[in-house]
Design a protein around this nucleic acid. Structure first.
Length: 941
RNA sequence: GCCGUCUUAGCUCAGUGGUAGAGCACUCGCUUCACACGCGAUAGGUCGGAAGUUCAAAUCUUCUAGACGGCACCA
């Protein structure tokens, strides 16, 4: 078979369509009724999103796991879907509306706005799912879900109502995080901190009234000259002050407690109160109290029954309560103006530079305003206990890597605060609560039910929607058909597009919820462990009565080339699609899988290039194996077949041993989610063992058209392709299809019925995707063969070293003389042809002792001495230097060994095997250096 | 302020008590009939610093420097 000289990834990246069309991604492909299941739900990407490197990393890991388990015969489901991403979509639609029609949402009304949001979703929401197809993600598209699908919305409504009925959801007036740009409340987790070095601390003078307050004397001018100085970073909030607080123990202010201050600019008088909250050491020791605009002040206000005066609108401008002078001003303009007015009045004490950290909106970076507002909350006490119980009693979820996530997660749970779940948006799940004219609330599953509860009054639904994370918190079970409907059966998966009738026939009578929950593992990033993972754990346990997942794999962050997280503002992003174009999907995938689990990494193209080269290596190795392969065929299980083939060469035993060891170790590594270990094992097995040594050793046989040798090497190759498939699906499928003898019979037993597998497609539906994943047979790990092969390799390396150091032209042949014991002699003799070829020698003389001319280059390996006669070619100075170098190297090691072995403590306390190993190594070194020294001395004369 | 992570060859990174590894870059040599996206041979590190535990420390403990992350506070 003729195949291209270099691998062109694009030529292989078209297999996806066939896989998808044939239904290979659906669990129904599995024909084994007793098959264990393996399930993963995808962290639903935002419909506004397009694929970034973080997705590519997580999807790669999920796909590796899914393909690996599928090949092992598990009933495998990786469920895809997208998240409605409340604020993000809302913002996109608002922008679009403004740009195209110059309209604001209120101009078109809620209903029309939501309609357009849906339209936007239909139009752009599939960007990311199409990109996932490019990635090769083996998700079951027939089960694709969207957080606002009807069933999922029903689930949301039922969960909300149940939590309300049980008292876990409440509505209340609290200080919340308000984003004036998005005009919605945010949960604590959606607010980030930003440190500003150019902040200011303003010292404001509040005139103190000497006499007790009474009506009509409220102007600053009428005060008696005593002032109380307060410090603030947000002067504009003074317009909402309703008290000044000092520490009760603070001697400076003792006499002022109970008096009033005339609050400048407002014409109001407010009391001076004493509260432990105040730190006498900070600022002036006197704190202005603004209960409606600061969480701590709110608490002080509660204790002292202070009025709560809201002075801002929802867009961050000042409202009427701030006074006519300030009404309508933006909060930062108001700040300037307040300071100016204080200065005019002689009430500005000073302004200090002060480093502040500001709360900012995670998405739009606007400074968040703490503001008093009535919102819906989830009480987290019982929720937290659900999660803590799971970790304490079952150790679930188990995080990989365990450090630091397990501790961070439990610490976070222990300090959990209530969750603000209402959002002032139109796009999302509208809160199922209705109000009558008097403001009484009726929470119900339907409007009719609410109306009934209200006694038939006119009612109006709450205008807010739920936090996006509320619906994604149900993702682990709502996606499997849980709706929370009590009467109806859990609706099984509706067949969106039944891939084929055959597949439907294999559908289990059990519901997906029965079959796939708990899921096996969740793969996600650090940033949403609290936002999403924790809530899914709690809500799944509460509502589905099961664990959401056993394990959580936390991926690291792919950083830009500057070592900072990729972001649009830094312009340091790397587009996965560009990498796919440049190096191929497979190279990008296996590079991402080669990153240590959970570790951050600075992106470098060179890493991907390494695996692009690896892909090409695999391509060309296959190309070689296919040359002269007439009459050869892949053996389904070379490991099992081999003993029947009788006499088997050292190289064959060795490669079988290496293959089985690698397969065994790869399975172990994947079980532990150590993807990078698996990649490294496969890379070195394929490149070093298979290409550099095995192919080279077998080259003559293959080139001579030895069909048995061809069949065998093709079979080893085929096993390697299977091992590589989860990482490099396209390349391995492309090559597998080209191998002689590959077909359905190589499938895992669960997929072997050819009738059920894509009848009529090429190769009768055979695919490496469904081939049996090699387990690795420990019985085939042959330590002796590996040791013997090691000797052959060492010998060849030493001769090559001599050739290079002595400047022997590659085309010149040499003679190789070896003195060794009988065992070694027979090993070397048996592999004479290979040694001659790889050492570029024309003669191999093996005997008890060396009989060579003085003009020979010498070297030692374990249990053997090597000589290469170089009549007329030898450079004695060079040879002396070469021998000295070898002696020196061994000497360094010998020194250390002597150091250890002369330490009585080591000899008595270290394990006996360890001591013995060192002793025998020492003996070997002494023997080898002895030989080398003798040779060196011989050259001195 | 509390909790935590990282610091290993020029670069990007593996390596959780027992002779320091990879890829790339570097040096030298190769039109060797699968592959120059290649082959062969070298060179390169007192594992951030200090102290300790141990027969033995890149690996465990403490301290310390630098980078970073989470949480809390921030008048």
């Amino acid at each position: 078979m003729e195949i291209a000289k270099a691998y062109e990834p694009k030529t292989a990246e078209n297999h996806y369509e066939r896989w998808e069309k044939n239904g290979y991604f659906a669990p129904e492909i599995n024909q084994d009724p007793d098959a264990p299941k393996f399930s993963i739900v995808i962290p639903p990407p935002n419909v506004t999103g397009s694929l970034h490197m973080g997705h590519a990393l997580q999807h790669t890991i999920m796909d590796v796991l899914t393909r690996w388990k599928r090949m092992q015969g598990y009933r495998t489901l990786w469920l895809p879907g997208t998240d409605h991403a409340g604020i993000s979509v809302q913002r996109k639609v608002v922008e679009q509306l403004k740009k195209i029609e110059h309209k604001a949402p209120l101009d078109i009304g809620r209903e029309e706005f939501v309609r357009r949001a849906w339209k936007w979703k239909e139009e752009y929401g599939s960007t990311i799912t199409e990109q996932m197809r490019r990635e090769g993600a083996s998700v079951d598209w027939s089960r694709e879900r969207f957080t606002m699908d009807p069933d999922l919305s029903t689930a949301v409504r039922n969960v909300f109502c149940t939590l309300y009925e049980e008292g876990w959801i409440y509505r209340g007036l609290r200080i919340v995080n308000w984003c004036p740009k998005d005009k919605t409340v945010l949960s604590d987790l959606e607010v980030k901190e930003e440190t500003r070095k150019d902040g200011k601390l303003y010292y404001l003078r509040y005139p103190v009234r000497s006499s007790p307050p009474h009506e009509g004397r409220v102007d600053a001018a009428s005060a008696d000259g005593v002032v109380l100085v307060v410090a603030t970073t947000r002067p504009e909030t003074m317009l909402g002050d309703t008290a000044v607080a000092v520490n009760p123990k603070d001697a400076r202010y003792k006499d002022l407690i109970g008096k009033n201050v005339a609050l400048p600019l407002t014409g109001r008088e407010i009391p001076i109160i004493a509260d432990e909250y105040v730190d006498a050491e900070f600022g002036t020791g006197a704190v202005k109290i603004t209960p409606a605009h600061d969480p701590n002040d709110y608490l002080v206000g509660e204790r002292h029954n202070l009025p709560q005066l809201l002075v801002m609108n929802d867009d961050g401008t000042m409202n009427a309560a701030a006074g006519a002078e300030f009404e309508g001003l933006d909060r930062f303009d108001a700040r300037k103006k307040v300071v100016e007015r204080f200065e005019e009045l002689g009430l500005l004490e000073k302004i200090d530079d002060y480093e502040v950290s500001l709360p900012i909106c995670e998405r739009c970076k606007t400074i968040v305003e703490p503001i008093l507002s009535e919102q819906w909350f989830v009480k987290m006490d019982e929720m937290r206990d659900i999660a803590l119980d799971l970790t304490r009693t079952e150790g679930v979820p188990h995080f990989s890597p365990q450090v630091p996530h397990e501790k961070v997660y439990t610490t976070w749970l222990e300090n959990l605060k209530d969750w603000t779940i209402s959002r002032q948006l139109w796009w999302g799940h509208q809160i199922p609560a209705w109000y009558d004219d008097e403001g009484n609330v009726y929470v119900a599953r339907t409007e009719a039910e609410a109306k009934a509860k209200s006694g038939g009054q006119e009612i109006k639904q709450d205008q807010d929607v739920l936090d996006t994370w509320f619906s994604s918190g149900l993702w682990a079970f709502s996606t499997f058909g849980w709706t929370g409907e009590v009467s109806g059966q859990q609706s099984a998966v509706s067949s969106h597009d039944a891939s084929s009738e055959l597949l439907t026939a294999h559908r289990s009578p059990l519901t997906d919820l029965d079959t796939f929950l708990p899921t096996d593992v969740l793969v996600t990033g650090r940033d949403i462990i609290f936002l999403w993972v924790s809530r899914m754990i709690m809500l799944t346990k509460k509502f589905a009565g099961k664990k959401a997942f056993e394990d959580v794999v936390v991926t690291g962050t792919v950083l830009g080339k500057d070592g900072k997280p990729m972001s649009k503002s830094r312009n340091n992003g790397v587009d996965p699609l560009e990498m796919f174009d440049k190096f191929g999907v497979d190279a990008t995938r296996i590079y991402l899988a080669s990153i240590a689990t959970g570790a951050d990494i600075e992106w470098n193209d060179v890493g991907v290039e390494t695996y692009r080269n690896f892909a090409n290596k695999i391509w060309n190795a296959t190309r070689f194996c296919l040359m002269n392969s007439d009459g050869a065929t892949v053996i389904a299980d070379p490991t099992a077949e081999t003993p029947r083939r009788g006499e088997i060469s050292l190289a064959d035993k060795w490669i079988l041993s290496r293959l089985n060891r690698t397969a065994n170790d790869v399975n172990k590594a994947l079980t532990k989610y150590e993807f990078h270990t698996a990649v490294s094992l496969l890379y070195h097995f394929f490149w070093d063992d298979f290409c550099d040594w095995y192919i080279e050793l077998k080259k003559d046989e293959i080139n001579a058209g030895d069909a048995a040798a061809s069949s065998f090497i093709l079979s080893i190759l085929e096993q390697a392709l299977r091992l590589l498939h989860p990482f490099m699906p396209y390349l391995t499928e492309e090559l597998w299809q080209k191998l002689p003898g590959t077909g359905v019979e190589l499938h895992n037993a669960a997929y072997r019925n050819p009738v059920a597998i894509a009848p009529g497609s090429d190769m009768g539906g055979a695919t490496i995707m469904l081939a049996d994943f090699p387990k690795g047979d420990v019985a085939m790990i042959d330590e002796r063969a590996e040791l013997e092969m090691g000797s052959v390799i060492d010998l060849i390396r030493r001769v090559r070293n001599i050739r290079t150091e002595m400047n022997i032209k590659p085309s010149d042949k040499v003679s190789v003389h070896v003195a060794a014991n009988a065992d070694m002699q027979s090993i070397l003799t048996a592999n004479e042809a290979q040694i001659l070829k790889l050492a570029r020698a024309d003669k191999l003389v093996v005997s008890e002792t060396l009989d060579v001319p003085k003009a020979s280059a010498k070297a030692v390996i374990t249990n053997a001495e090597i000589a290469v006669p170089l009549e007329g070619l030898i450079d004695f100075d060079k040879e002396r230097e070469r021998l000295s170098n070898q002696i020196n190297k061994l000497d360094v090691e010998l020194q250390r060994l002597n150091g250890q072995l002369s330490n009585a403590d080591f000899v008595s306390k270290a394990p006996a095997e360890k001591v013995e190993a060192l002793r025998s190594r020492k003996a070997e070194i002494e023997q080898q250096t002895g030989t080398l020294k003798t040779n060196l001395e011989a050259l001195q004369r």
